[in-house]
Simulated assay, not measured.
Amino acid sequence: MSMKAQLVEDMKAAMKSGEKDRLGVIRLINAAIKQKEVDERVEMTDALVLAVLEKMVKQRKDSISQYDAAGRDDLAAIERYELGVLEAYLPAKLDEAAIQAAIDAAKAETGATGPADMGKLMGVLKPKLAGQADMGLVSQLVKKALAG
């Protein structure tokens, strides 16, 4: 079942069980997906749905840090709940050792040797690790691997 179909099924289940908060978050996800479909005139694949979810997760994390800094625990709690629902749809995150193994494999595949090859290496890694790793961490590890 595609992620898009899974979201529709989860929305129906949340409606039936009366989970209003969860239903609201799932509706937000579906609205973001529909908006991307309309704006870009594309059929949403699982990879594109993952990209939308990752963007929403990043937005929630930014909001949480800003609300915490402003002392708005009530709003931060809402964002944390939404973040929990969003992260449930993302694949399990890879640990640093698994990311390093993927970097080593991509390095061998592309023949990358120095910092000038970072773009080439990230171009190979991004589709492989989408949704499974924080790309900021991947970028740091790639820089370290290419520097030494």
Rank of each mutant, 00 (worst) to 15 (best):
I29R: 08
E79L: 03
E82A: 15
A98L: 07
G111R: 03
A31Q: 14
L90V: 05
A31F: 14
G114M: 07
S17N: 14
I26D: 00
V38C: 00
E19I: 00
P91T: 08
K107P: 01
I26L: 15
K107D: 00
K16L: 15
A92I: 01
M135N: 01
L121H: 03
V49S: 10
V8K: 11
T45M: 03
V57K: 08
A31H: 14
L129I: 06
Q132D: 03
E79R: 05
V138H: 00
G71M: 07
G123M: 09
A147I: 08
Q66T: 11
G111Y: 02
A31I: 09
G136H: 11
L90D: 05
V138I: 09
A88H: 11
D73A: 12
I33P: 03
G111C: 07
L83I: 04
V49M: 05
E43N: 03
D46P: 02
E9V: 11
D62G: 04
L53C: 07
G71E: 08
G131V: 05
V8W: 04
Q59L: 06
E87S: 10
A92D: 10
I29V: 14
L28E: 15
L50D: 04
E109I: 05
T110L: 06
G84Y: 02
L23S: 05
D117W: 01
I99P: 01
V25Q: 08
A32D: 11
I78Y: 05
M1S: 10
K36G: 01
D68G: 00
R80T: 08
A51Y: 01
S2M: 07
L137S: 01
V49I: 10
L141G: 00
A147L: 14
E37G: 01
I103K: 01
A147N: 11
M44C: 04
A105R: 13
L137R: 11
D46E: 09
T110R: 04
M11Q: 13
V85T: 10
K61V: 14
A69L: 11
E109P: 07
T110D: 02
I33F: 06
M122G: 02
A106M: 06
R72F: 05
T45E: 09
V25T: 14
E109D: 14
D46S: 03
Q6R: 14
M44S: 04
E82P: 05
V52Q: 12
E96M: 06
I29P: 08
I29E: 06
A32N: 13
M15F: 13
K20F: 09
E82S: 15
R41G: 09
D74R: 11
I64F: 07
D68S: 07
M56F: 02
D74A: 13
E40C: 01
A145L: 08
I78D: 13
A108Q: 13
R60H: 12
R27W: 12
A101M: 09
A14W: 03
D74N: 11
L48N: 02
A31Y: 12
M118K: 15
Y89C: 07
G84A: 06
